[in-house]
Structure formats: C-alpha cells, structure tokens
Design a protein around this nucleic acid. Structure first.
Lengths: 296, 296
DNA sequence: CCCAATACTTCAGACAATCTGATTCTATAG
DNA sequence: CTATAGAATCAGATTGTCTGAAGTATTGGG
C-alpha cells in the first residue's frame, strides 16, 4: 500500500491550518517532518499536490480532489478506532434480537433508536417471529436476546418481565358476529365462523392456547395481515390492543362479547442466556425496554 | 493515527488466505512479519482480533467487524491511488462544462455516461444555461468547455462544430394560430398572439435573433417549461425539434406555416480555451460528442 | 504413543522510514 | 533593502518494521 494514513493526516492538517509550520504544531512535529510527509505523499502518488508559489503553497486541482478523498478516508479510519474503543469498553460488536410480533414494536423501535442516538455502534440485528417461532429462531440463530410472549424455560435462560400486553377478541363491524344482538357469545356460536390466527412458521410444538378450535381456521403469517383480514370481515380473532386501538376508536373493529371474556393479558418476557452475559449494549437495551415498554 | 493501512491489509490477507503463512506469501513477507503486524494492530486497538485456538486462529466477533470496516477502508484507499494514477496519466481532476439547454441533452448525457463506463474518474460538473447565459457562465465560472449555439469569438477560444440542430415554430393544436386556415402566416398575424421565449438570465447583451418582437412576449427559464407553456396553449414559439418530436407526431403540437419559414437550423459549437489544453477526459469527451451528437 | 508436519510465536539483529534540529533559500511586507 | 515568515534541505538520531533462526503448540499418521 503506497498510501499511509499519516500522510493524509498531514495533508489535511496543512490545508486546515493554512501552512506547513502551523500544521507541524498541530501534529506535534517539527516543520521539516511535515515537509517530508507531504513530499513523501507526492512521491508515492507521483503527483504534485501543492503548487509552490513563493513562500506560500496552494493546492493543485488534483490536490484538492485527493484532499477531499483523504478526508473521507480519515473519517473511516477514525470510525474503526472508535469501534475498537467501544468494543474494549465492553460494548459487544453485534447483538441479535428476536421478538414476538405480538409485542408493541413501536416502543421496541424507540428503544433501539435511543441506542443509536447514544452513539452506540453495536450492530443490531432484529428478527420478528411469532409464538414458538421466536424461541426457535433465538436458539437456531444463536441470538443474544429475545422478547417473547412465553417460552419453555430452562436453566440456560434468564428472563425479566416487561409490562403487560392486552389482547382483545374482535371482528369487523360488518361481520355477522358484530351485528348479532345477544348479550354474550358462546363458544358454539364462535365455531360457526371463521377464526383467524397467526401461524407459527416454526412448527415448534407449542400450541396456541388461545385458539378456539372451530372447524374453520385461517392462518396468517403475521399480525399485520391478520388485521387486514379482520378488517375485511374474513373472520374474527384475537388482536393485541395496541395494534387496533385506532380501528376500535373509529368503530371499524368491534370487540366481541365472548362469555368467557373478550380480553386476556400476558406479560412479555425479555430472555437471554445465563452463560453469555449481555454486553453494555445489551444491558442498556434492557434498561431502555424496561423503562420504555412500561411507558408505552 | 493509531491505525496503519498495512495492518489492515495484513488482517485482510490473513482472513482471505486462511492462514498467517499464506498471507505472508501473498504479501511477499516472512511469516513473522505477518504475526508482528497483526499483533501491532491488536495492540494499537487494544483489542483481541484472533482467538488462538491451537495452531489455527479464528476471528473474534470484534475482529469480524473490524475486518469488514477494514475492507471498506482499504477500498477507499485504493480509490485514492487509482485517482492519482488517473491524474498522472493526464486525466484532469475535474472538468466543468456549460451547455445550452437548446441542444439535445440526451446525446450529451450519453457521452457523459460513456465516460463513466470507461472508468474515468474525473469529476464532471455540468451546468445548463441558455443563450448568452452559457458564455457568461463559462467565463464567470472559469469552466473548461461549453457547448453553445453561438458565442462571441475571441483569440482565447477554440471551437469545433457539432452536428446541426433544427428548431421549428410551433403551437398547441388548440391554439388559434393552429386552427386558422390560411396557407401562410404573416408577421403581423403572429404579433397578435403571445410569443414564448426562453429568457437569458445573464442579461448578457446578446439579443435573441429569433424573437419576433410582438407586443406580448412571455419569458420562460428553460425549454422544458417553455414546452409545457406551448402545450397548454399559452402561446407559440420556436422549439428544438428533438424536444418535441413526440408531440408533433402525436399531433399535440403543430408547426406554424410562417411565411418566412417555419424552421431554422444552427450548428452548435464546442468551445474551450486555447491557453488551457483539454486533459484526456476533455479530449475523450470531444470525441464522444463529435461521434454521438452526430449519430443522434 | 511418538514422530513429522503444520501453524504460529518470539527474539536478536539488520534495515528502512521518519523525525529532529540546524541551516539555507525565497518571497514579501514594511 | 532589510526583517521576517514559510518552506526546503541535510546530517544524524530514533523508531518501526522486516528477516531469519529458534522455539512452542497442535494435529494427523504410522
């Protein structure tokens, strides 16, 4: 490699300071060292960077371009140094996260944004799965953390509760179940209609305990398509309240008066491995989630 | 600067080749030099990059990230070297171009794209002006080349003809001038309607010789707005044929049978300074324009 | 189980690149 | 026409990097 970052640093200092002498001061060198470095850069590139006009040197056109490119190069180099500093201060290089799509994504995103705002340079990879698929991915991908509705506990895992999420049994206002006039709905009545359920792609074996088990169940891959399906009147189903608040308020969706209760709540869990302690980024994320998910 | 491009180059070579020994071969060094460089990088960053597992070393998580960033850094450094090579082979660092918006932009763009395709890294700045504004900008911005309809000649400039551009006098099919039934139109007839003209923002003093000089002239800033104005039936005016071919074919615009002729042609000129010879990029652009503009 | 091969580390000395400090050159302001 | 600021040059000191040889650890084969 002909180039040397020190040469570029010298070039930048000379231009910023306006003279070789002042650049030397900034770099804690002697002026002749600056001359040497600039000369060396010119020699290596076989290019004249400064036009010596009497006692003042001005950049050539080529010099200007090399300078601009050099600044970018230096910025990238500093970035690497910053990354290294982060890593050795206990921030992990990367953090893999798997979350259940039933959880309020918005507050999780807010937490992630806070991390970014704090200048944390850990690479964060986020995957959204459903039900048993979350744990499946967490283990299969050897991820660092998962946010999940429930999971098969084990000695290997540590979990912390986050704030409660509530689900409601809803249908479109046009749906037959919404238009009926009984005070309450029984299970057989529900069974006459299509139930919508988010399907766990992992076939993980954990059955959905909230499935009513009627004859006709449509499976959807996530809550966004499920919401569309409910809105279109395709069927009824459980939806996390935070995803349908607007539609309930507007009356597009209505809560069904199921006799055994039209709502249920669960406490999402933040889970990580006991044998692999979280780095500072992970710890900070836990703090943010515990504060933020609660506030949401 | 703690970082050294040679360290990064070594790191990349080790990972690419899969061993310190093979990396040494690739770098034309001895193996201990590779060890030294990797160690030095680890020391400077205070970071363990390789986990020594027996006789084989594998990257740590941090190492993987530093490696990825390092590759990017190296790519940028190589880019600078490539730029330098270009410059010393006679390609100018930057090339400023001013062109008249009446010329066929498409073939000019094709020429510029060819330059890019040829891997020429000269920074090209293109400005579009009109009439006298072209020369005004060319001189004011100390640009390298202009493509112009006509200009005030001088010893300082060299010009080469490009292929002819034809303009036609047109109006919208809905316009009164288009609906009239005379075989030809006289100047007084034209004077009864709004003339559209592209206005030279520079106030350069070169009057537009094709202006009819009626009572009502609307000035527009470029040919694209002029075309819109003509299409909307706001008035009539001269338009370069290449900009309105589609509208003429579709019948949206019609050519007006002006008695003194409904068309005129001019030969655009490619102009540069005689005291500042073009670099290789400029020369190549001239070639491409002479070939391409002709073929258009 | 031991030997040979592989892969890396360590170290001393050689060499090369860079820095310092003194001096010289040159243009410009006063 | 000096004084001065800015840069170049040069010899010698210093530092960083490379080489080559010897050393350590791991692995695979016989």
């Amino acid at each position: 490699m002909d180039l040397d970052l020190d040469y570029i640093e010298t070039l930048v200092a000379v231009v910023d300071e306006g003279s070789f002498a002042r650049a030397a001061k900034r770099l804690n060198r002697v002026q002749s060292a600056v001359t040497y470095n600039v000369r060396q850069l010119e020699r290596r590139l076989s290019l004249t960077l400064f036009e010596r006009q009497g006692r003042r040197s001005v950049l050539t056109d080529a010099g200007r371009i090399i300078l601009e490119e050099g600044r970018i190069l230096l910025a990238r180099a500093r970035r690497i140094e910053r990354l290294a500093r982060h890593f050795r201060h206990g921030f992990e290089p990367s953090l893999q996260l798997v979350i259940d799509g039933a959880l309020p994504l918005e507050s999780i995103m807010r937490a992630l944004k806070s991390l970014a705002d704090e200048g944390i340079s850990t690479r964060i990879q986020l995957k959204v799965e459903f039900l048993g698929g979350v744990q499946f991915r967490f283990q299969g991908d050897d991820a660092d953390m998962m946010l999940v509705k429930e999971y098969r506990a084990s000695e290997q895992f540590v979990s912390r509760p986050l704030s409660e999420v509530t689900c409601a049994l809803v249908a479109s206002r046009e749906h037959a179940l919404a238009r009926q006039t009984h005070a309450t709905l029984s299970l057989p009545e529900l069974h006459q209609h299509v139930e919508l359920s988010v399907h766990d792609a992992s076939e993980s074996g954990l059955p959905d305990p909230h499935l009513f088990g009627g004859a006709r169940v449509f499976y959807l891959s996530d809550f966004y398509s499920k919401k569309q399906a409910v809105l279109l009147g395709l069927g009824y189903g459980w939806m996390p309240l935070h995803l349908i608040r607007a539609e309930l308020d507007a009356g597009a969706l209505v809560e069904l008066p199921f006799e055994a209760g039209s709502r249920f709540s669960f406490v999402p869990l933040l889970v990580y491995r006991s044998d692999r302690p979280l780095g500072r980024t992970g710890q900070r994320l836990v703090e943010l989630l515990e504060a933020g998910v609660g506030a949401a």
